[in-house]
Structures are given as structure tokens and as C-alpha cells.
């Protein structure tokens, strides 16, 4: 998706896979792999595909709630990150969202180094996911006490399609840290400035941020590099 106008023109099909080229193709392959894995399971698993119930209000996309917590005392690695992240559940309607949300603790009441992630179904909350690898995120650092309210406003805006950037949004994260909390929203194409600017403006609006709030955009590529530098990793190909 090169720009938002392409997104708007092609929107009629309601098909989530209308992108030409780039990250989506990789994602499709992966999805097929996953499909094969599903086929190995029983038919009843396949039939449990999440759909809106009768009379419920469907969402534009299905979403998955995830939770992660850093295991104390163990060095972080990509693998342990994937192992530490737990899927809470998938929902397809507004009502199903509230079922999960109402049975989860508010992020401001989480303890330790933990995160909630809310991503479109099929996108893992990881930099390396095909939907994320060309992407980036807007980050807002919050002083303690604001996370629960900001997180709720952020995810309601995402679920309600308030960002108006076509297929660009991947998901949102709230990160509870020692002295501050961080909320972020991830999109697919870090290089698409029209999209990132629109996401920024929508964030200001839905979070009711004062004009002087510092918002930082970080590409996942930079995040990966920073992570590798921090952990002293050297690119196997000899670069870096």
C-alpha cells in the first residue's frame, strides 16, 4: 500500500489481502504454513474460527490480545520473548472485545515489566513478523497513573477504525515499566509519511494529548539495531 489514497480506492472488496507486492506476499506464505498446521489439528479447531455472534457488532478486523512479562533474572533474547508472550484470546465483535477486556486487569495495575498487546489476528506482536518488518511505531511515554485510561482510548480508536489509514495499522502495545508506562501503535510501512502523520494526528485527538506532548516515531529496523547493539550481537554476514 503506497499511500492512503490507494487504500481508499481499493476499499470496496473488504478483502484484507488486497495489497500488491511487498510485505503482504510474505505474510500469505506464512499464513499458508499456519493453515497447514491447523489442518493437522482436529476439524473442530478449524470450526472454532472466531466470528461475531448473532446481534453483535462486527469489527472491521479480528484482533488478538496478548500478554507478555519479562522473566526476572534471565537475559532477554528473541526466542525468550516469543516464549514469554501469551495469547489471551481472539475476538471479532465489539461485544466479544468487552468480554476479554472486562476480565483482564487494567494495565496501570500490572506489576513488573509487562505488556499488553492488541494486534490484528494473524500478526504477531514482534518486529520480525512479515506485517511489521517494514514498519514502525509511534511511542508516547506516560507518567505513572495514566496508562489505563490512555490504553483504553487507544484501543477503542483502533477497534473503531478511527485512524483512517487503510490496512496500515498492525496493533497497539502498552508497556508497564519501572518509572513510566509507554503506549505505542504499530503500522506496516514506516516510510509512508502520509500514513504516519495521520496516525500521529489521530493519536493526539483520541488521547486528548496536549500540543506539547512528545511523540516519537521509531522504525522497527532501528529497534532491532538498537537491541542488537545493546546485546552485543554482531550481524552474521559481517556487517555492523
Amino acid at each position: 500500500m503506497n499511500n492512503k489514497f490507494d487504500a481508499l480506492k481499493d476499499d470496496d472488496s473488504g478483502d484484507h489481502d488486497q495489497d500488491q507486492g511487498s510485505p503482504k506476499d510474505g505474510e500469505k506464505e506464512k499464513t499458508e504454513d499456519e493453515d497447514q498446521n491447523i489442518k493437522k489439528k482436529s476439524l473442530s479447531d478449524v470450526l472454532q474460527m472466531v466470528l461475531p455472534g448473532a446481534g453483535e457488532h462486527p469489527l472491521q478486523y479480528n484482533y488478538t490480545f496478548w500478554y507478555s512479562r519479562r522473566t526476572p533474572g534471565r537475559p532477554a533474547s528473541t526466542q525468550s520473548y516469543e516464549q514469554n508472550i501469551k495469547q489471551i484470546g481472539i475476538f471479532a465483535s465489539v461485544e466479544q472485545f468487552w468480554r476479554f477486556y472486562s476480565h483482564m486487569i487494567r494495565p496501570g495495575d500490572l506489576t513488573g515489566h509487562s505488556d499488553f498487546h492488541l494486534f490484528k489476528e494473524g500478526i504477531k506482536p514482534m518486529w520480525e513478523d512479515d506485517a511489521n518488518k517494514m514498519g514502525g511505531k509511534w511511542i508516547i511515554r506516560l507518567r505513572k497513573g495514566l496508562a489505563s485510561r490512555c490504553w483504553e482510548n487507544l484501543i477503542l480508536a483502533m477497534l473503531g477504525e478511527q485512524f483512517m489509514v487503510g490496512e496500515e495499522i498492525c496493533g497497539a502495545v502498552v508497556s508497564v515499566r519501572f518509572q513510566e508506562d509507554i503506549i505505542s501503535i504499530w503500522n506496516k510501512t514506516a516510510g509512508d509519511q502520509a500514513t504516519t502523520a495521520r496516525i500521529r494526528d489521530t493519536l493526539r485527538r483520541v488521547l486528548n494529548l496536549p500540543p506539547n506532548t512528545i511523540m516519537e516515531y521509531k522504525t522497527h529496523n532501528d529497534s532491532i539495531k538498537a537491541w542488537e547493539d545493546f546485546h552485543g550481537l554482531v550481524n552474521p554476514s559481517g556487517g555492523l
Binding site: 481508499l8 476499499d11 472488496s13 472491521q60 472485545f97 480508536a157 477497534l159 477504525e161 483512517m164 483520541v206
Partner: peptide, 16 residues
């Protein structure tokens, strides 16, 4: 709905 007519949009008040 949105341009093209397929986006499902809800505002905060409705969702709440």
C-alpha cells in the same frame, strides 16, 4: 462507513 463504503467505524461513545 468510509470512502468506498466498507469500513466499519465506531466512535468511543458507541463502543463504551
Amino acid at each position: 462507513t468510509t470512502p468506498g463504503g466498507t469500513r466499519i467505524i465506531y466512535d468511543r461513545k458507541f463502543l463504551l
